[in-house]
Nucleic acid binder design. Structure first.
Length: 190
DNA sequence: GTTTGGATTACT
DNA sequence: GTAATCCAAACA
């Protein structure tokens, strides 16, 4: 079952936390979300809204639940979900999923055999799911959909940590992970 | 028109 | 430890 359409109307931080344990479906592939980070449109120096006018325009011109796909370091696409809450707008960065269906296809796209490494990072999962430049501005919640989230019966224990890979506002504990998961991204925090 | 700085990954 | 590689924003 798909998650409720008002899921993306929460505030970014609680939405990011609530997304852990949901199933992300994209074409023939799917996986359980095991790692996210929250970025706020206001008072968050690490968010794109702080430095990029285009990110603020994006929030203005799109509905909650829209995909914000960003190319970073010139080679990896990172997938975000636009959140528009009463307490503030922002984005959820999808950092890692646990592969569920379409694993063979993911292995083919990634050119890697280890299932643990297939989607254990924001740049990796976009390759595995074939998400890229063309998907910027598409919706997770409105038809026609390429990708969406489903409810699961996962009883996930969620832990939080500091965000990683950024240079500003590092201290906010806005990274959320499935406890003891083998499928989250590496670097510090493990 | 040129410079700069990334929400990363894979390989040595 | 570090090369790979692109875009938007900022500066001149």
């Amino acid at each position: 079952m798909q998650i409720s359409s008002n899921f993306f109307d929460k505030d970014p931080v609680s939405a990011a936390k609530a997304l852990i344990g949901k199933r992300l479906v994209c074409g023939e592939c799917s996986g359980i979300v095991v790692e996210t980070e929250a970025y706020a449109a206001e008072n968050d120096k690490a968010a794109h809204t702080f430095t990029k006018p285009s990110a603020r325009d994006f929030i203005k011109n799109h509905n909650a639940g829209t995909a914000y796909i960003y190319l970073n370091y010139g080679m990896y696409w990172l997938a975000n979900v636009l959140i528009k809450g009463k307490k503030g707008n922002g984005f959820i960065l999808i950092r890692a999923i646990r592969p569920d269906k379409g694993i063979d296809l993911m292995i083919k796209r990634r050119g890697m055999k280890k299932i643990k490494d297939l989607c254990s990072g924001p740049g990796k999962l976009t390759i595995a799911l074939n998400i890229g430049r063309d998907d910027h501005g598409k919706s997770f919640s409105e038809n026609p959909k390429k990708f969406w989230f489903e409810e699961t019966k996962e009883k996930t224990i969620v832990t939080s940590d500091k965000r990683i890979g950024i240079s500003r506002s590092k201290s906010l504990p806005w990274r959320f992970l499935e406890k003891d998961s083998e499928f989250v991204s590496k670097k510090k925090g493990r």
